[in-house]
Design a binder for these strands. Structure first.
Lengths: 144, 144
DNA sequence: CTCTAAATCAGGAATGGTTATTGATTGGCC
DNA sequence: GGCCAATCAATAACCATTCCTGATTTAGAG
């Protein structure tokens, strides 16, 4: 089963960084798989709580932070909205609907040589280049 | 004097949107000119307070929000850091130092046809494309 | 210049997302 | 089974920002 293989991989990554795969961390991963989207910490918390009502929101934040550190989860931040978490850690663009908050991927677009161009034009040592997109999702367009 | 002309222009823009140029709003503009950088609301507040200690932080937020609405001020947001305000409303890139928080412009780099490319690859109606850059500023590089 | 209504203000309380603290619990290893 | 460090739940604290209130100021009419 792919599930088990993936879990072994994550367990291994955790171990390498001195962490263990606790039931809470697994529950957070399961929740991320379940939503298949870009949930906030609060969203994840609500899903996790369905199966284990004793889990606290702080624990979810902790778990997400550990999972991000070992590289199995990626976070993205839009202003005026909580941070979103994603199992897709490949470089990709996400766009957020300014009306309903829905976040979706934008396939087939890369940053190209923009990152190199930026590094050439600044004395800063560039460590992060994030493109923050906002728009109106198809559903909200219809309702508009 | 350019100052007066600029002020007239701003007064006119305010009037068109039903606002007036109050002493507090002028003080906020002066503070933005004074720093010549990318101050946070708190930074602006501290400068304004030097000349008028009775001004409240909330008033600064209000003033910045009005000035942004009429298009003479632009705000940019990096996560893990308060929103920065800028008198430069031309499209341009800013980079923030992850160590000291300093924000500087990156000249000579535009988004090119990236915005068009994104619109072609999403069903969303794209309204905002912001590039959020982080790095280590020259000073912090030397200290590192 | 004076009056009045509307806009704006100062001050402080409230909010929302996130992080820090603390004492209790758990899990891996002998 | 018992020990020690890692982890946890719960809650308090934090910080940037917004909201609320009653007081003050302002622009425009007369």
């Amino acid at each position: 089963m792919t599930n088990t293989a993936l879990e072994q991989d994550i367990r291994e990554k955790l171990r390498r960084s001195g962490y263990t795969l606790t039931s809470q961390r697994r529950a957070v991963l399961d929740a991320l798989k379940e939503t298949q989207g870009h949930p906030s910490a609060e969203d994840v918390y609500l899903i996790v709580k369905k199966k284990n009502p004793r889990v606290a929101l702080g624990t979810v934040y902790q778990a997400l932070s550990v999972l991000e550190e070992i590289g199995v989860v990626e976070s993205k931040h839009w202003s005026e909205s909580p941070t979103r978490y994603d199992l897709n850690t490949e470089p990709h663009l996400d766009i957020r609907c300014g009306n309903c908050g829905r976040v979706s991927e934008v396939p087939g677009v890369g940053l190209g040589d923009l990152e190199a161009l930026i590094q050439e034009n600044t004395a800063y040592n560039v460590t992060s280049t994030r493109l923050v997109l906002e728009g109106l999702c198809p559903i909200c367009q219809r309702e508009g």
